[in-house]
Amino acid sequence: MSLPEPVVSVAGLHKTFRLGFLGRRRIEALKGVDFEVARGMIFGFLGPNGAGKSTTLKILTGLLAPSGGTAMLFGQVPDTQSVRRRYGYLPENPSFHENLTGREILRVMASLLGLDASTASRRTREVLSVAGLDRAADVQVRRYSKGMVQRLGIAQALLHDPELAILDEPMSGLDPVGRREVKELMLDLRARGRTVFFSTHIISDVEELCDQVVILVGGRVTRQGAVRDLIGQGPKQYEVVASGLPTQLPVAPARVMGDRQAFLVPDEEAARRLIEQLWAAGARVHALSVRSYNLEELFLSEVGKGPVGAAVQLD
């Protein structure tokens, strides 16, 4: 049985920006990126500022041409109209024609998507309501708040109910309610068999939503795989929280919170010994918890390895 064709596949992707007089300054934003996104999942694209996430997404949507390697959507080069009908794209910090209203903008987009008049007006209504913009639909965009603009960006990406949603930092600029709504929207898309590919630098969003994740640092993929596997990979730690300690401590605390101190030990046996020692010394033990290695620590250790952002080189 052959594997289903990936929705997004990127192989050996390079991008070098040339700047300055005659392109003498070069920025290598992508240095050979490989990954694949399978159908029907929420796929996280995680990386610090300047890692090359937006650059990768712009190549996938045909806004930028790669300097090397290939980027494919649905097994085809991305820059064709038949492929474009199948995905929706939210750029980072979307911006719209300020003097048009949300509804007018969606109407233009619907014509570009080739939706017929009745589908266009029905879908416009639907996405406006999903994005929570019903009441702002006939207001000019220059009167929108930052979060409302972001919501309109999401609405236009989903206007034709595409198979694949490519979202560049979809939660940016949204309040907690908005973030929750967008997360639920993404889960709903997955439940309806759609694929969501989104970039972020917020680790908890990835832990909460994603099936798979790629970690991009300095234009290179440093880790990729199922979120559950990545989290399970690292060592577990036991944390003991105690107060009323004698000055003579058996081990140095990992952190101090007011009058409480937390100790980290590698295994259960060490935790038991530590607790006994603490009790013997007359301290009070408040909590014992198991901390699994989380994505944040993994991410920070990956980021620590490579330089943040791309270095500028001179020819």
Binding site: Q81, S82, R84
Partner: peptide, 14 residues
């Protein structure tokens, strides 16, 4: 400059 075309030219329009 204002990137308003990002969302227009990534639609199925040449």
């Amino acid at each position: 400059e204002r990137k308003t075309l990002y969302m227009l030219i990534t639609k199925p329009v040449s």
